[in-house]
Design a protein around this nucleic acid. Structure first.
Lengths: 336, 336
DNA sequence: CTGAAAGCGCTAACAA
DNA sequence: TTGTTAGCGCTTTCAG
């Protein structure tokens, strides 16, 4: 339906090669023929088919990004940062939410066949698939996922610092007099959470106090799950001194339920989250701020280096995070 | 670099047509040749090039979505709903944030040249460009933007109900005793906001009371701007009885600043938002819930009907919204 | 400065 | 059941 390069060529009385040259401003074309072609193109509202162009050039001018989901602020922010840089670099962005899909690898492979390179968030795709893609020449950057380094491939990665901030967070809680700390989250599901859990354990272990830490595994990092965890604890009467939650949504859910049950926060129990989403500020939630947008932006830049070939050696970036203390942990009346 | 259909054909000792047939499970192929081809494909890790396929089939199996930005929950939710349905329909999703770009039309045209159809949010693209795209055969669905209906083209649209909810919201405030109502937002920038503003005016006008309404125009619907508006009002001492904000972020910023200045909410002034984002719940913000995800999902379904050709007559959907009353407007001590 | 022609990787008649 | 061949819309030598 849309007009093709041939329509324009016929209309302007030139060959398709000339039209191509004019459209991409490559090669020399006499000004008046150029004008004729431009006029014809305008009249026919001709826009070169990206498809034809891509096939001929064997480049897509598009990047992909694979994430689990777009609910909650974290992924959206990462995608946003990614899109912004990609747009600057004149590349389209393809998105793929693996969600609960059973076979993400099929969709990911198909995405890889549509773009010059892609970013993979967290554990959305099995290591093996990522390695195969990379081995087949796909440009891949991992975000919030530990580097993959085999002898055959080295794959770029970008993460936010987790362990150090987790240690700092735990030390803050210990300093507030907390002794029994509960970590809420599933360390197996995300590398980030795993590191946070380790950091908390490290801090407690080295605190040379009688502090102890317990893991409360959950199957999703949502407000609803947070509420359930809190409700159960309130019912059984077994509250720890502090809940360290794997993300803000979990913490916010917990917090809402604790307040509903009239549990004093932070008087009776402290609560912390992770990410510093907007709602965290309004809830007074102590949390760790991580540069979500910058994660995406950095990934886009690394990917571009790979695509343009300006760098071949793999890089692993770690972006700084920041502890944000608010009222859910402070001030705390130290237990007698 | 990746292997092509010819590599597989050679490897399996068949023609490329047979490989094509096997890969797409079309046409009849003898089981043993099929197996040979599959084996060859697996060995070479062959994935059909989407590009070649698309060019030959003249379909992209991809949809686009154009939005202003991904910051804030609203757009992210719409995109999420869109992606979910698109994935179900086995279509890739291209995103384009126009952001502050000066010439979105170029980027949009180029996106249109990469997909079978696209969704345009709000006023990201001028009417004329949308009409031209549609006239050139592009499938287009508008979201949160008034329908475009010329005699030549009729373009699908999906919106959330605005005016009725705005009336209901204003009546609620009047019922709480508010007389001087201030609407915060720029009606010119978004059709949604325009309708909300009209609804509030309607309600006040028909209240047969001495109520009045004033417009406070702002240049962005962000927390920061909300804070500025509140700070200025506090400084000048000219507080209305209620702030009706064009979205939640504006309202949350306002609220935070009012509380910081020790202004009693809702005692001295009521505050309302729009969208019911997560933070609204934690801030106790009265707001209007709109089905953001469903907006995206509906758009994706409408678009699919256009692409498959199962419908040719334009449709305009309006999704219901819901007033959510929380503590920023209720209970209110009625003025003496 | 311009045109003819050979692909890019695939699908889809049409033959065999 | 399988192979041959002509495109899909564009870029890009290579001649002229």
């Amino acid at each position: 339906m849309p007009s093709t390069i041939r329509d324009v060529a016929r209309h302007a009385g030139v060959s398709i090669a000339t039209v191509s040259r004019v459209m991409r401003a490559s090669g020399d074309v006499r000004p008046d023929t150029r004008d004729r072609v431009m006029a014809a193109a305008a009249e026919l509202r001709y826009t070169p088919s990206q498809l034809g162009r891509q096939l001929a050039e064997r480049r897509y001018a598009a990047n992909g990004i694979v994430f689990p989901d777009l609910s909650g602020p974290y992924y959206a922010e990462v995608v946003l940062g990614y899109e912004a840089v990609a747009a600057e670099l004149r590349r389209s962005v393809l998105i793929l939410a693996t969600h609960g899909r059973e076979h993400p690898e099929v969709a990911v492979r198909e995405m890889a066949g549509r773009c010059d390179g892609l970013v993979v968030l967290q554990r959305t795709v099995p290591d093996q698939v990522v390695e195969e893609l990379a081995a087949d020449g796909a440009r891949v950057v991992l975000v919030a996922r530990p580097p993959i380094d085999t002898d055959s491939v080295g794959i770029d990665s970008v993460s936010a610092e987790n362990r150090g901030a987790a240690v700092e967070l735990a030390e803050h809680l210990l300093g507030q007099g907390c002794r029994r700390i509960a970590f809420v989250g599933d360390p197996d599901v995300s590398p980030d959470v795993q590191e946070r859990w380790r950091g908390v354990q490290d801090a407690v272990r080295e605190s040379s106090s009688d502090a102890e830490v317990e893991l409360i595994p959950v199957d999703a990092l949502t407000e609803e799950v947070g509420q359930r965890v809190a409700a159960e604890a309130v019912r059984s009467g077994e509250l720890p001194d502090a809940y360290v939650c794997a993300n803000d949504e979990l913490a916010l859910g917990l917090l809402a339920e604790l307040r509903r049950a009239d549990v004093d926060v932070p008087g009776r129990v402290c609560v912390t989250g992770w990410d510093d989403v907007m709602a965290a500020r309004y809830a007074g939630l102590t949390t760790v701020r991580q540069p979500m947008r910058e994660l995406g932006a950095t990934a886009a830049r690394l990917l571009d280096e790979l695509i343009t070939g300006s760098r071949t050696h793999p890089r692993h970036e770690v972006l700084p995070t920041e502890l944000v203390v608010r009222t859910t942990t402070h001030p705390r009346k130290v237990a007698p």
